[in-house]
Write a protein that binds this DNA or RNA. Structure first.
Lengths: 202, 202
DNA sequence: GTCTATAAGTAGATAGAC
DNA sequence: GTCTATCTACTTATAGAC
């Protein structure tokens, strides 16, 4: 994906290292954690497999970094979109914005983000542990969005706020499983998701 | 899961064969397709790995059967729930029922169903091909539910019906990733999902 | 029907040349 | 920095005893 061709979070940027990370993100987002082979990553990055070990100490290190980049990029993109709103934007409009930004990253901007949502549940415990605090921040962002809407009286009181939040995030996170640009525009999905969430909550 | 202890779709029931299928469903639902090892299945079924080959010709055959059973069980459970409704039940109440039945199978009744939703996207093409027609039937069931609600004027016309259907199913299918019985009751999740879907659509 | 022993293939990782 | 060659471990699958 286009936006992934830029920075990858390393302090010492290297074109080869970035190619490897991009390739790993792509393979992970398509095949999943266990089926991701170093040989496939290497081929896509146009190097031989042992070259990966010059940049990463192990398969697990490489994958962990892809996941960390994906998680951070997802959160930052959504945060930026929210920060760009005029002060005093209504809570439901802020939720709309978060829905749109999440889907854009997930479906259009970043294989890294897709790699995270499709594989987080199947990672070994030690990798998942390293992603926990960053992940909690993103969940916290959504929790605050819903709490602010609730405080403004915009959310039906019969809803369990945690369940509602996870159901909404699930609807968004599941989109890579079925959406593809050839059958329906991204705009349609985003608009339908906004409408579904807005009316579903309030 | 309790309900999985019964029939598994074979014409010649065998206690060992069923134990193997149950074990495979459990491992698949937890670890995912590629990380599922025959040795782990065998251990859980309390046999040695080569015993699996008495009942299944290959790893892929075994996994394909787990998926087929899971898909059929999910559809049949939701169909039964709908069939049990009084004739003339309102379209939105039918959708409520489908949401409830889907979540019950997914979270409470069947590792087979969870194995399907968590792994369908990562199966090799030939296995997925074998599951296609059964899968289309279940998607068709949901499409008809939404079309009937729309025909009755109960669904907002701004919604793309396919996108709405997949977003709703995504919210349901994602639940195994975050729900567990220790943090919140199943009833809360089901009630929140019903409310979210009902108001989200109409 | 289920086992032990083992063959055949594949994947991650390392050694050492260039 | 990146390669070729190779080691070791693991996984599916088969052979053949019981």
């Amino acid at each position: 994906m286009a936006a992934d061709r830029r920075r990858n979070g390393s302090d010492t940027p290297s074109a080869t290292r970035d190619r490897i990370l991009d390739a790993a993100a792509r393979i992970l987002s398509e095949k999943g954690y266990s089926a991701t082979r170093l040989a496939d990553i290497a081929q896509l990055a146009e190097v031989r497999a042992p070259a990966l070990y010059y940049y990463f100490s192990s398969r697990e290190e490489l994958i962990a970094e892809v996941m960390a980049v994906g998680q951070r990029r997802l959160r930052e993109h959504v945060e930026s979109a929210l920060a760009a709103l005029p002060p005093g934007t209504a809570p439901m409009d802020r939720i709309d914005t978060a829905v749109q930004a999440h889907l854009q990253v997930e479906l259009q901007l970043s294989d890294f983000a897709t790699a995270v949502t499709r594989n987080l549940g199947q990672l070994p415990d030690d990798v998942r542990e390293r992603l926990r605090s960053e992940g909690s921040e993103y969940i916290g962002l959504w929790r605050r969005l819903l709490e602010q809407a609730r405080a403004a009286g915009l959310i039906r009181p019969d809803l369990d706020l945690r369940a509602a939040r996870m159901l909404v995030m699930g609807a968004l996170n599941w989109t890579p499983e079925w959406w593809n640009p050839r059958q329906g525009s991204l705009t349609d999905v985003i608009d339908t998701a906004k409408s579904l969430v807005r009316h579903g909550l309030g």
